[in-house]
């Protein structure tokens, strides 16, 4: 390898490492219940979307995930609503999260796309464990398709997040964490 090529490869590795660290840091904030810090990572214009997953016939996979333009999703919202959810948890009166659940986000399979201007597409998988009161367990597994945007203060901000939860009937009574 030429020096230039090596430099480019190292630069790329460092870039990917930076993004991985950002995602791990984000997960840590959620797991540490530092929701006020987490919401700082959210861009003002975020589209936070978790569609409903349908069982569809072969050849109709384009209908598998509910459409944000016209259909019902589990989450389909922007920062204002997300910030409202954070305020709700912080009241200490949100019974579905009071007392806090023990939540752990394992973020894996991180794949970083090419930087386009100040934005970069990033895919990752999550395994989210939630344990509540004595013995309630909820497990959420899925994949995320993010667009991260360079930010001078927080490194990046999350400008777009599509969350594909691998469930049809939601097997949990609520989702009170973020992904």
């Amino acid at each position: 390898m030429t020096t230039n090529a090596t430099d480019a490869a190292i630069e790329r590795l460092l870039f990917e490492r930076e993004i991985e660290k950002f995602l791990y840091r984000e997960a840590e904030l959620l797991d540490d219940r530092r929701y006020n810090d987490w919401i700082e990572l959210i861009a003002e214009d975020i589209h936070y979307h978790m569609p409903v997953r349908r069982n569809v016939k072969f050849g109709e996979q384009h209908r598998e995930n509910s459409d944000s333009e016209s259909e019902i999703s589990w989450f389909d919202e922007g920062k204002r609503t997300l910030a409202g959810r954070v305020r709700q948890i912080n009241t200490g009166l949100h019974w579905a999260e009071e007392p806090f659940s023990r939540v752990r986000h394992l973020i894996t399979n991180i794949q970083v796309g090419d930087l386009d201007g100040d934005e970069v597409p990033v895919r990752s998988n999550f395994y989210c464990w939630s344990n509540r009161l004595r013995d309630e367990v909820n497990v959420f597994v899925g994949t995320r398709q993010d667009v991260l945007r360079r930010d001078p203060e927080t490194g990046f901000k999350i400008a777009k997040r599509l969350i594909l939860l691998d469930q049809n009937v939601l097997l949990s009574k609520v989702i009170t964490t973020f992904f």
Binding site: V52, R54, I72, W74, N168, S172, K173
Partner: peptide, 11 residues
């Protein structure tokens, strides 16, 4: 009706 119906389990 909007589609799809949402479905979830409550113990």
């Amino acid at each position: 009706l909007f589609n799809p119906a949402t479905k979830w389990r409550i113990p």
